[in-house]
Nucleic acid binder design. Sequence first.
DNA 1: CTTTCATATGAACAGATGTTCATGTGTTAT
DNA 2: ATAACACATGAACATCTGTTCATATGAAAG
Lengths: 119, 119
Amino acid sequence: MDEINELMCEEPGTHADVVGRVRESLPDDDTLYELADLFKMFGDSTRMKIMFVLMESEMCVCDIAELLGISQSAISHQLRILKQSKLISSRREGKNIICFLADDHVRSIIGQGLSHVLE
Amino acid sequence: MDEINELMCEEPGTHADVVGRVRESLPDDDTLYELADLFKMFGDSTRMKIMFVLMESEMCVCDIAELLGISQSAISHQLRILKQSKLISSRREGKNIICFLADDHVRSIIGQGLSHVLE
DNA sequence: CTTTCATATGAACAGATGTTCATGTGTTAT
DNA sequence: ATAACACATGAACATCTGTTCATATGAAAG
């Protein structure tokens, strides 16, 4: 019995080849985790709604909350997370904080998702 | 005081315009939830790894588990979720279940994410 | 038909996540 | 200075998620 990889299912030669080649092609772990964390941002409906809104127009926190019918506190918590991920940014204007998309990738990523969901 | 929208922050006229227009442009709730659920699939590093592997080659469950160093059970649970989302599919070949990407959107979505993560 | 290999699945558990509630900070107006 | 508005934040809580462990199913080999 071949001892190269005792855990691999069977098929003495062929599988080991493919598995080895694919292993080489995988991005490093840091990249994988970053990638998953990025998509995690799009994986919550509240954050998704916020980003959709900001795709149309920059807007203050209060208006986002009102428009979406979600509490100001919940919006604020999610905005903090989105800012940490560098997906949105903001500036102060008097009493208001105006939020806007910080990255054009947001549009393309959501676009790809939409074209999948809409068959 | 304007009574059109007593919860809106201030700016009697202008904000109401924008808010109203953006509200019209939002996809319906079902679409939003579907979209978030789709991205949720990409928001876990185990699932991300599985999809990366299958982008290179179709592969049986056992080899995926071995290659990624993740328990067979964990892989199997995640595969079930990915199949429910129609992102991967499988066929039986003797004792093995061969998994493969069921949707080309997977490639484009991950591609968009990667180009963001890699600056 | 019993064993072995490949995979699936349910229960249990720990940790992550998102909301609410109460309160704090910062800005403008009176 | 004080009040009112816009927003941020911490704690508490319930829910969701992903893994492990044990066990079940299903195909092939002896």
